[in-house]
């Protein structure tokens, strides 16, 4: 008897779960506004990219041309395919002490898989994912980028 009960409840449970799935797809079918397709490039002006879209890694600079990168190479270590290469230098502080600082943040866009691990590894939130995605160039070497702007320096108070 227990077997029969299980059998019948199996059948009803299966039917119910299948109907649940069909209800969702039926809802999507009847509601056109749910469609998420972006008709690029026809809608270049009003294109809406999701907030978490990952286009490329950029370094944020504020109005004083200052960034937050300490040159700790955490992102370089976190990167699974050697996209980032950090070249450091030694700054002399006013007190005469030597301090390690960022010289060049080299970013190989052609190697990047947009996995977001570098951004998560960064202790000072110096880099982030940008929404730009039209990366096509005619020469491969143009894909190797220097992320810190010329003449930029580290913001005060960031260790």
């Amino acid at each position: 008897m227990a077997f029969l009960n299980k059998y019948i409840s199996d059948v009803f449970g299966a039917v119910r779960s299948l109907l649940k799935g069909m209800r969702l797809t039926g809802y999507y079918f009847t509601h056109r506004r749910e469609i998420i397709t972006q008709q690029y490039p026809d809608n270049k002006e009003q294109m809406h990219l999701p907030e978490r879209f990952r286009g490329e890694v950029v370094m944020t600079h504020d109005a004083n041309n200052e960034h937050a990168c300490t040159g700790c190479t955490a992102c370089e270590l976190a990167c699974p395919n050697a996209t980032i290469k950090i070249i450091t230098k030694f700054d002399i502080s006013p007190e005469g002490k030597k301090k390690k600082a960022l010289d060049t943040f080299v970013y190989h866009l052609e190697l990047c898989t947009m996995c977001n691990l570098c951004i998560e590894a960064c202790p000072t939130d110096a880099i982030k994912m940008a929404q730009t995605f039209e990366h096509s160039v005619t020469d491969r070497s143009q894909l190797t980028k220097k992320l810190n702007k010329p003449g930029s320096k580290i913001r005060e108070g960031i260790e």
């Binding site: 797809t25 039926g26 999507y28 079918f29 749910e34 469609i35 397709t37």
Partner: peptide, 10 residues
């Protein structure tokens, strides 16, 4: 068309 609309595509 049906598959597209069920998968929220065009």
């Amino acid at each position: 068309k049906v598959s597209a609309h069920m998968q929220i595509r065009l």
